[in-house]
């Protein structure tokens, strides 16, 4: 299973590297969203300080929608999903491989975004380990949930519009937990970030298990 997952992840990442969509479109888009949020709230500096964590994760969610849409389209455009079934690739491995590829893209964007909030918003990182752990766990959760929902809407004609409608509410717990943990890491609000990270870890574990179990059914039925 891990061999197949690595194969699928490597293929998706190679496609992304070759198309350069993440570097040339997604990263600039994320940076632009961050800057525009900054323009909108800069007049009220305390509000911007308080909202930094939330703005960061809302931007990550927007980027995640784009990444998942591309990841889904790669398999649906020319019938590759069927070919994966025929090849006998374990559906759980396809799920893990695709989720890993999405997570790697999101983490790349998040590195740039962390730089962005430090430079543009003047944020200071007080707990770097908590910040890095939150990024890692929340990103895996977002990628796993997004990949599963991407497979769910793969057969839907208007999947580009249906996917965000499904993804955003389902990922609300991640937005909440990651924002709170980030608040602690940035020292902007006095909360226990580690307990929020524990909640995020639970959410992520549940969605990975759900994805490994359900992806095969979705691959067959859509």
């Amino acid at each position: 299973m891990l061999t197949d997952a690595r194969l699928v992840a490597a293929k998706d990442l190679r496609i992304e590297l070759r198309s350069r969509v993440t570097v040339s479109q997604v990263v600039p888009f994320a940076g632009l969203v961050l800057v525009l949020f900054g323009f909108a709230l800069d007049a009220n500096r305390p509000t911007l300080d308080l909202a930094t964590s939330g703005l960061f994760w809302v931007t990550v969610l927007f980027v995640a929608i784009m990444a998942v849409q591309r990841s889904t389209a790669v398999e649906t455009t020319d019938g590759a999903r069927r070919a994966l079934l025929l090849a006998g690739v374990e559906p759980g491995a396809v799920f893990i491989g695709k989720a890993v590829a999405v997570a790697v893209q999101l983490l790349t964007v998040e590195v740039v975004l962390v730089g962005g909030i430090v430079v543009f918003y003047g944020a200071s990182i007080e707990e770097p380990f908590l910040l890095a752990s939150t990024c890692l766990v929340a990103t895996i959760g977002i990628a796993a949930t997004g990949t599963l929902l991407g497979a769910l809407v793969a057969g839907v004609r208007a999947r580009e519009t249906v996917l965000p409608i499904l993804m955003l509410p389902v990922l609300a717990p991640v937005l909440l937990g990651a924002t709170r943990a980030f608040d602690d890491a940035l020292g902007s609000v006095a909360v226990n970030g580690w307990s929020w990270l524990a909640m995020l870890t639970g959410f992520t574990a549940i969605n990975i298990a759900l994805g490994v179990l359900a992806y095969g059914v979705l691959l067959e039925e859509t």
Binding site: K11, R18, D78, A80, A87
Partner: peptide, 23 residues
């Protein structure tokens, strides 16, 4: 089938290598 199941951004050889490994 009617679809080719090939990935546009990969080369011919990369596509076949992927499907060989997958199969």
């Amino acid at each position: 089938g009617h679809d080719t199941a090939l990935y546009d951004e990969l080369t011919v050889e990369e596509n076949l290598n992927f499907w060989a490994a997958a199969s």
